[in-house]
Computed example of a mutant assay.
Amino acid sequence: MPTSRDVARAAGVSQATVSRALNRPETVSQKTRERVQAAVQTLGYHPHSGAIAMKTQRTKTIGVVVSELSNPFFQEIFETLSQEFAKAGSRVIVWDSALHERDAIRALQERSVDGVIMSAWDEDAQEMRDILETGLPVVLLNRTAPKGSFDSVTSDNHNGGQLVADYLHQHGKHHLVFIQGNPHTSTSMERLNGFRAGLHALNQPSPTVLNGEFSFEKSFAVTRDFLDQHGAPDAFFCANDYMAFGVLNAVKAAGMSVPEDVWVIGYDNVSQSDWPILDLTTVRQGSRQMAQLGAQKLLNRIENPTTPAVKTILPVQLEIRGSSENAPFNHEN
């Protein structure tokens, strides 16, 4: 079995350089990293993770907590995070918060991961408070925490809600329904608050609010119930695209048509949203940019654990498609 000494000899560098290239690749030149990686592949060398952790106090493992892995938005997030952490020589473990949130907390408490990316955050949950107490590196993606306690990367959710309010008002849509996710998550609250604020500024009534729980199935069910009891509103605005897909299916199941009978607008701009069969108008937030920035923040946090937390907010944009008749948006008004 090849050793790090064999890799050093083949690459023409010291064992210390091999260690840095594999464990802290940012500390060596790209040329040196390539030579070491070539020697590793040629020799079939596999560093012992336990030995690495003992030497460096690092596991080279990152945890990622998502709220619904079946949601295409989180699939895009996870794919990008995996790519970014692989560049830094770390592997990724993913947990679905609905099933494995305690596992993520235990991993932090036992120091079996170097840090965690959280894209699920319920401000009222004891599990979230437990994470605060670990004192270990945590970065929030698509979520914010109270009092700026963690680094975070999110989109301008409040402005996204306001954009939709302005757009619907421009086209005479006033009987509105908002499909929220978990009401205790920052994303759902901020998007709803922005939507309400935008409508209020236009002297329009607040929307009816239904709880889709960030679920395709639940959003389908609450939409179908609403349509059966009240008929079609002017428009549904959903706190994410995944729920909007449920709404589109519910409208069709009720024998109605989008956009002829009702408009549907989502939030995220996942890759499926511009498929012709869906053609969803949505608020675009850069999931891949968000994941790249989140990975950078966590790697920096691991290296510099005492620096102040920084909240990064990315701009949003309304993507107009067929679910709102491709009606133009004059953002200047």
Rank of each mutant, 00 (worst) to 15 (best):
G89H: 04
L69F: 15
N269E: 05
A16K: 09
A244N: 05
P25Q: 02
A295R: 04
N326E: 09
E26T: 03
S82H: 09
R102Y: 14
G294Q: 00
I277M: 14
Q292M: 08
G286P: 13
T61K: 12
V116A: 01
A221T: 15
Q109G: 09
S287L: 11
S119R: 01
V66Y: 07
G294P: 00
L280F: 10
S186V: 09
K55P: 14
D96L: 03
L22S: 02
G50Y: 02
N23G: 02
F178M: 10
D225F: 10
A107I: 02
R143M: 13
I320H: 01
N193G: 11
S271C: 11
L299I: 02
F178D: 08
Q317H: 10
P207D: 13
F195R: 06
T61D: 14
L210D: 07
A309F: 10
V40A: 02
A11H: 00
E68G: 07
V18A: 00
N249S: 13
L298K: 03
T80C: 03
Q126W: 10
K147R: 14
S19T: 00
R284P: 11
G198V: 08
V209N: 10
N330S: 07
M189A: 14
D274A: 11
V264R: 03
N304T: 13
R106L: 12
F178G: 10
L199W: 08
E110V: 05
S19L: 00
G44S: 05
A51V: 08
D228L: 13
R9E: 08
L210E: 08
V92M: 05
S219L: 07
G255E: 03
V283Y: 03
V139S: 06
V164S: 09
L192G: 06
P183M: 09
T312Q: 06
K252A: 13
K55W: 15
